[in-house]
Simulated assay, not measured.
Amino acid sequence: MTTIHYGLLIALAIALLIAAFTDIRSRTISNWLNIAIAAGAPVFWWASGLSLWPDVAWQIGFALVVCGILVGVAYIGYRLNIVILGGGDIKLLGALALWFTPMSYLGMLWYMALCGGVMAVLFVLRLMILRPKTRGVLPYGVAIAGGALLVLYPKLISVPAFA
């Protein structure tokens, strides 16, 4: 793993932490952050040594399929008048599809679901114990960031040798 490759993974981890904290604070994930994450993917592909064909083409195709599914889920939620995922969450998941292989992405979804489940239990306990006047909204960007960071963790701890 090159220093550039490792640095890009660190930058992604920092961006994910920013996404989580801004989602907690304002219940939004900024477009500029999602764009920055997506824009970093081609540099990551280059640093990873991916070839334009078929590697980059497959990665872009995978991201397009993920985005199509996410837009479909959002549309279903809109038609049922429920919020399944917010717009920032959808854009963050789409941007992350540019960084992860399909198997890594599935792992991220698994960890994301676990993090989201723990958050939901804590959210309900908060409602039962504190009885706030407003119920609030679960900041699911935290679960997305947590799932992605758990997938990135093994890559981040394999520190490259700096000469």
Score class of each variant (00 low, 15 high):
1 M>W: 07
2 T>R: 08
2 T>S: 15
4 I>N: 10
4 I>E: 14
5 H>R: 12
5 H>Q: 15
6 Y>W: 15
6 Y>M: 09
7 G>C: 15
8 L>R: 12
10 I>Q: 11
10 I>E: 08
12 L>N: 09
13 A>L: 07
13 A>V: 08
13 A>N: 09
15 A>T: 02
17 L>A: 12
19 A>F: 05
20 A>D: 03
23 D>Q: 07
24 I>Q: 03
25 R>L: 09
25 R>M: 03
27 R>K: 11
27 R>L: 09
28 T>G: 00
29 I>P: 01
29 I>N: 04
30 S>V: 00
30 S>P: 01
38 A>D: 02
38 A>G: 13
39 A>Y: 04
41 A>V: 04
42 P>L: 06
44 F>D: 03
46 W>V: 10
48 S>I: 00
49 G>H: 03
51 S>R: 11
52 L>S: 07
54 P>L: 10
56 V>D: 01
56 V>H: 00
57 A>Y: 01
57 A>T: 10
57 A>W: 03
58 W>V: 10
60 I>G: 00
60 I>N: 00
61 G>D: 07
61 G>L: 04
65 V>A: 13
65 V>Q: 01
66 V>N: 04
70 L>C: 06
71 V>I: 14
72 G>S: 05
73 V>S: 02
74 A>D: 03
76 I>P: 00
76 I>Q: 02
79 R>P: 00
81 N>I: 00
84 I>Y: 01
85 L>P: 01
86 G>T: 02
86 G>H: 02
86 G>R: 02
87 G>R: 03
87 G>P: 01
87 G>S: 05
88 G>P: 01
93 L>S: 09
99 W>V: 08
100 F>K: 05
101 T>M: 06
102 P>F: 03
102 P>V: 05
102 P>L: 09
103 M>L: 13
107 G>K: 09
108 M>Q: 12
109 L>F: 11
109 L>I: 14
109 L>M: 15
110 W>E: 09
113 A>D: 06
115 C>D: 09
115 C>Y: 11
115 C>V: 15
115 C>S: 11
116 G>Q: 09
116 G>I: 10
120 A>L: 14
121 V>Y: 07
123 F>V: 07
126 R>W: 15
127 L>M: 14
129 I>F: 14
130 L>D: 14
130 L>C: 11
131 R>M: 13
131 R>Y: 02
131 R>W: 01
134 T>G: 04
135 R>M: 14
136 G>E: 13
138 L>Y: 11
138 L>F: 10
141 G>N: 13
142 V>M: 06
144 I>K: 13
144 I>P: 12
148 A>M: 13
154 P>D: 08
157 I>H: 12
158 S>I: 12
159 V>L: 15
160 P>Y: 14
162 F>K: 05
163 A>T: 13
163 A>Q: 12
163 A>C: 07
